[in-house]
Amino acid sequence: MNKNIIVTAALTGAGETRQKNEHVPVTPKEIADDAIAVAKAGASIAHIHARDPETGGISHDPAVYQEIVERVRESDTDIIINMTAGGGGDWVPGKDNPANGGEGTDLQTPEERHAPVGQLLPEICTLDCGSLNFGDQVYLNPENWLREQARLVQASGVKPELECFDTGQIRLAKQLVHEGLIDDRPLFQFCLGIPWGAEADAKTMMLMKDHLPEGADWAAFGIGRHQFPMAVQSALLGGHVRVGLEDNLYLRKGVLASNVDLVDHIVNQIQGLGAEPMSPQATREHLNLRRPEGVR
């Protein structure tokens, strides 16, 4: 078990979930304020998606990301920004012609996915390591797209978080490492319990951990009611943890959570196990992050 654990707070995600929980941040100010608040609660990383301030739905607009990032960086609170680069991969086969994208399809090229990252240079960004049946749609990320995106991330100097939704995606991520497309010690994130990816249970987490390259850093999260069990299991197995309203809207059954509630709860749990949350600066040093120029 780690005695010093990196806590990531995934603040909002891409889904339109505000109608289910009023605490889900949507506007740039709300998202930035939550990033600052979770840092004070013990998180060292804020994982950020942008939302359309008017509709609450997903936004790929670099200007929205810029406002979030600038608000966080201009605050007096230290927090590492982990920006999603996995948007624009949703494919819903058309009802009349499955060769055409139906309602809900949202596809971007690797260059479009990378644009906000390349412009704003967060310390970390996600790199989704394959395609997946994602509920009743398909998340598309063919091998050639992933290689191109990995090259763009590498050229930017941002550290990729290799998001793996199943064991085959770990194989592909390891191939990227082997080909020299991932610099330094790789950082993996196991995404568990998402229909229809890897199960959210200890056996699956151990299997995925056992397939990692030697010396890799890793964390894991579960969605919904699996959030806290998977976070604790990750800590016990030597990994790091992620919680937040992107993955789970409840503190416990019937009790809606805020991002701070979720971070407070997991910090209390890992402290009860004899561990401590890692500070942002200690996290930078551990992960060998390149701090963006001009950031305090």
Rank of each mutant, 00 (worst) to 15 (best):
P116N: 07
S258H: 04
E276Y: 01
E67L: 09
D166W: 00
V241T: 13
S156V: 07
G180L: 03
K203N: 11
E179S: 02
V295T: 15
E276M: 08
H178Q: 12
V92G: 03
N4K: 13
E199W: 04
E148P: 07
A115Y: 11
Q154G: 06
R113N: 08
L172G: 00
H60D: 15
K40M: 09
A202Q: 13
Q189R: 03
A200I: 04
T8M: 07
V64Y: 05
I45A: 01
V117D: 03
L127R: 07
Y65A: 13
D90S: 13
A219T: 14
A150L: 05
V295R: 03
G118Q: 08
A155Q: 14
S131V: 10
A115G: 00
G180T: 08
A231S: 12
L273I: 05
A220Q: 07
D184T: 14
Q189L: 14
E30I: 00
S75L: 10
G168W: 03
V263Y: 00
A85L: 04
P116H: 08
N144G: 01
E179Y: 00
A219I: 12
D183V: 09
V177H: 03
M206C: 08
G157H: 09
N144L: 13
R225F: 07
M1P: 09
E112G: 02
M208V: 08
D201M: 06
A216W: 08
I31N: 03
L181D: 03
G87Y: 11
H178W: 02
D217Q: 12
A63Q: 14
G244L: 09
V38F: 00
M278V: 14
Q19I: 11
M230A: 02
L11N: 08
L107C: 07
G254V: 12
G197V: 06
L176C: 04
R151M: 11
R18K: 15
L121F: 07
G135F: 03
L273K: 04
R284F: 00
K253R: 13
P25W: 02
I223T: 13
R151S: 07
I170K: 00
N141G: 07
N4T: 15
P93A: 05
R51L: 03
A200R: 05
R291C: 05
V243S: 02
L107S: 06
L192M: 14
P28R: 01
E214L: 12
I36F: 08
D61T: 11
D183R: 13
A257K: 02
A63W: 01
P160Y: 06
I58S: 10
L237D: 14
A14M: 09
E54H: 04
P195N: 10
V7T: 06
I80H: 01
V243T: 08
A37D: 14
M83V: 15
Q119E: 15
S156Y: 06
R171D: 15
L121P: 00
T17R: 09
R151D: 12
A257N: 04
V232D: 02
L273E: 10
I45H: 05
S44A: 12
G193Q: 07
F188C: 00
G87V: 10
G135C: 05
R73A: 10
G42F: 10
E161M: 12
A50R: 04
N144V: 14
V260N: 10
N268W: 08
V241A: 10
V72H: 06
P229E: 09
C191I: 15
G104V: 15
L289F: 04
L187N: 00
R284I: 12
D183L: 07
L146Q: 08
N21P: 02
P28C: 02
G56H: 02
